[in-house]
């Protein structure tokens, strides 16, 4: 595959990087990423991956665009209100970069569809806003041996970690099981600064780009936290013994996907 002059110009700043170059840009164009959730995290992640020329991007979300989303979900605009988020996201991404094929999937993820959804993709980004989905994505990615980026944001804080099969703990190693409904505040009730999605979602896009190009060290075996009030990033080393984990451990007890119940207030 030879680059067109337009592609050379579009990707010039990637190609001149020693770590990416022509080869890395080809890897991006041949790569695929599935973004689950077209919200605060998914919006910036999707935009940066589309701009970077990731050849195939899937985006999954069941919701339609609401005025209250526009404070942070920068992939959507006023004209998109009431439109399915995945359609709005697809339109923005395709306007940004015609090299990218966007698969828009308007659905909730569940034990029924998740394995089928993640199967065609190289890397998964969890941009969901609830624990049942986060545990479902983790378990499915462990079972299907897919790398993924977990992230969460609330108020002025965010966290992320990357799971790579065989390279350290999964989300369940750290957090075991979803907290009971309403035990832990969500960003819907506690609020979140819109730019938090930009910070953390962009880091998720960065992890996908690094995974696809093979550049640098991924956030595997580490949890990164960001506190915007203190303006502090920390990287916490996670225990590397995963042998007793119920899903990624040596003798898994969770061998089927679980649909945890969603807190009622989180469902529209």
């Amino acid at each position: 595959m030879a680059f067109s002059n337009e592609q050379l110009e579009r990707y010039a700043r990637h190609i001149i990087l020693k770590e990416i170059g022509v080869k890395g840009q080809k890897k991006l164009l041949n790569g695929s990423v599935l973004i689950i959730g077209a919200g605060g995290l998914g919006a910036p992640a999707a935009m940066y991956l589309a701009a970077a020329g990731v050849g195939t991007i899937g985006i999954v979300d069941a919701d339609v665009v609401d005025l209250s989303n526009l404070q942070r979900q920068i992939i959507h605009a006023m004209k998109d209100i009431d439109k399915p988020k995945v359609i709005s996201a697809k339109e923005t991404m395709e306007e940004m970069n015609p090299d990218v094929k966007v698969n828009a999937i308007q659905a909730f993820v569940s034990s029924e569809n998740i394995l089928e959804l993640i199967e065609p993709y190289d890397f998964i980004i969890d941009g969901t806003d609830n624990f049942p989905a986060k545990f479902l994505i983790n378990d499915a990615c462990v079972m299907a041996k897919k790398p993924f980026s977990h992230a969460g944001i609330i108020r002025f804080k965010g966290q992320l970690m990357t799971y790579v099969p065989g390279q350290g703990p999964c989300y369940r190693c750290v957090f075991h099981e979803p907290p009971p409904k309403n035990a832990v505040p969500t960003c819907k009730e506690a609020g979140v600064v819109g730019a938090m999605g930009g910070v953390i979602g962009s880091l998720q896009a960065m992890e996908a780009i690094k995974y696809l190009t093979g550049v640098g060290d991924l956030l595997a075996g580490r949890l990164m936290t960001y506190d915007a009030i203190k303006m502090e990033f920390r990287t916490i080393k996670l225990p590397h013994d995963t042998s007793t984990c119920p899903v990624c451990g040596e003798n898994p007890t969770i061998t089927e996907l679980i649909d945890y119940e969603q807190a009622a207030c989180e469902l529209k």
Partner: peptide
């Protein structure tokens, strides 16, 4: 610039 070096790299 930067297409100069891009063409060299290619």
């Amino acid at each position: 610039c930067p297409i100069t070096f891009v063409k060299v790299k290619v």
